[in-house]
Design a protein around this nucleic acid. Structure first.
Lengths: 344, 344
DNA sequence: GCATGAGGTGGGAGCGCTCCCACTATGATG
DNA sequence: CATCATAGTGGGAGCGCTCCCACCTCATGC
């Protein structure tokens, strides 16, 4: 045994080796591997047997080099760590994305962007076109990433949108509709002084939830009292602070719509501190229908969004966009649903 | 303008183009890009300028083809969907892994394995060595993946271990110690009839928690009553069932240690059904210190494990293993900590 | 009988990079 | 002044694949 053999314990067979074994040319093996129809049954059988015998697996790097496809897409989550850990939202998105990608033969690259340094790293990565497409979650209004994607002409699908005039493909939930349903529910229960704790308004989704809140009140002919609007940031802490603020400004309020379950959980704490009973004194509605909603005391009425389905849909749109670089674009809104529990 | 130019709007510059512009050879550019010290200051400056002017980014496929490194690692989570969504555990692991990987210049590939088909897909992928290393989370006793990794001689680090004789590198929390601390705490509060709801015992971590429970009782001279042990599966539903079982068998029990927070939340429900007050009649301790623990009524006393740190550590070990294919192996246990809240 | 076309096939060229070896300056040494 | 390390450098070879074109075969039509 030569030294070379000792050092290369598992030299993987190449396309060429398969061709030799099957008694055909490289081209034919390539055609079989890539599922081209222009191969005779006989040749195909010989090649398939050789592949099985040799345990051949194509070398992706060599393939990429010539096709300049990578067969992978990136899921980019530009979000503070705190968000990721507390929200099952991202887990659900990931689950949907992963499931749908497994159907085709694409790989999922997960990119968490925390700071400027990591954003630059991502920029380099995308510039190098190391993925065929990008899924971008949790878009902020002034996020520079969507622009970069457009400039690079890299297929992309957003979750959420920068504004109503978004030019890229996106998928999002009917935030306004969900909020409207929540507030209508409160109105139908006879509540009249309904406050809200908003999310960060530089996210279009949060802004839409606030808009839905206003619409529902307007439809019911209830004058909007700006003193009943507090601004939060989707976190538990933000919800607690927002609720305290509302209680200080409008002690007589009898309901509150929070733009996330976590904020609703925080609001619950603030209400407890203030000795308000839920739902008797103040009814509470959250948004997301996350695990937390089921475990608070009392359990939260909440607006459910089809998060996993959103992930799946994003992938489907992205695949279409990759297939037709001739700029396939689609913008989709998925319905939300009010889940009623004890808090309202 | 020729047709070719029209069709290639953004032909990326190659190493060769940089070399030409800088007036040096390909080798020198390669050396600069890869940080070799064997380059004169003058040449380096010229190359760096050319790179900046041209916006050169190396083609990873070409590099991979010759180095047979991919600069990416896979994080494999072979777990039912239900687990992922309810447990912040995976989110925390992902966060840690991602943060630590960003330090080096590796990419994170996330692979969720749900069924046999997806496992086969992963096997093909690993066989093709499309990653430099693998992080494997949530290992079951009879999981075939660790064996595959050994056979392929692919650098790997497990989270958890198959058994006490695990041959691969791994990182896990001190499950037995955490459980012992939990039960000691209950004993110190004067509880004597302490039950437990276990996790799936084909996971070494769950088995270790049960062992810790037994140890603590033994140390205190309390005879172990097998009627106080119920088997769950880490889910809320399993916890509820387990608790019902315990109440049926040993109505007089005054405390219960659940091997996960979710199961503890389920136990809380069962106790409420049975009109037992927590903690007055029955004290409850969970494991994981997840979001859920903070939101149940009453909030759960729970064993915290440094999940994010485990993710980071796994990456550090993996990098070492990749650097020294001469089989660097390390097995690490991280400490746990009891977080006391109202439930016990 | 010969042109025609469709269905298959083999293999050269080339993707962009790293590796490595041969080579050139440059200075140190006896 | 010849000799020899030493630091840099250029570029050929080759990684494993797909693309594409020339070519081969065989059935069909006139």
């Amino acid at each position: 045994m030569s030294r070379a053999e000792q050092q290369q314990p598992a030299a993987r067979p190449t396309l060429e080796a398969v061709a030799a074994r099957a008694g055909v040319g490289r081209g034919t093996v390539s055609r079989v591997v890539n599922g081209s129809p222009k191969v005779s049954a006989k040749a195909r059988a010989a090649v398939e047997q050789a592949i099985a015998e040799l345990g051949y697996v194509p070398n992706q790097a060599a393939r990429s080099l010539v096709t300049s496809r990578t067969d992978s897409v990136a899921l980019v989550i530009p979000e503070s760590v705190a968000k990721l850990r507390s929200e099952p939202y991202f887990s659900d998105i990931i689950t949907g994305v992963s499931a749908e990608l497994a159907e085709s033969d694409l790989q999922l690259l997960l990119v968490l962007v925390r700071d400027e340094r990591e954003r630059e790293r991502l920029t380099r990565y995308l510039t190098a076109r190391r993925v065929d497409g990008v899924l971008l979650v949790s878009v902020h209004q002034d996020d520079p990433l969507p622009e970069l994607l457009e400039r690079l002409e890299l297929p992309a699908v957003l979750n959420g949108r920068r504004s109503a005039e978004e030019s890229l493909s996106y998928v999002h939930a009917d935030n306004a509709g969900g909020a409207r349903a929540a507030v209508r529910h409160l109105l139908s229960r006879g509540r009249t002084a309904i406050g809200t704790v908003t999310g960060p308004l530089d996210m279009e989704g949060a802004a839409a939830r606030l808009a839905g809140y206003r619409q529902a009140l307007a439809e019911a002919g209830v004058p909007v009292d700006e003193g009943l609007v507090a601004h939060g940031d989707f976190t538990e802490h933000g919800g607690r602070e927002g609720m305290r603020e509302l209680l200080a400004r409008r002690p007589g309020l009898d309901a509150v719509f929070c733009a996330s379950d976590l904020m609703a959980a925080g609001a619950l704490q603030a209400l407890r501190e203030a000795d308000r009973r839920v739902p008797e004194d103040v009814a509470v509605v959250g948004f997301d229908d996350s695990v937390v909603a089921r475990h608070t005391e009392p359990p939260l009425t909440s607006v459910r969004q089809p998060t996993e389905e959103m992930g799946r849909l994003m992938v489907r749109l992205l695949l279409r966009e990759i297939a037709q670089p001739g700029r396939f674009r689609r913008q989709t809104v998925l319905p939300t649903e009010l889940v009623v529990r004890k808090s309202a």
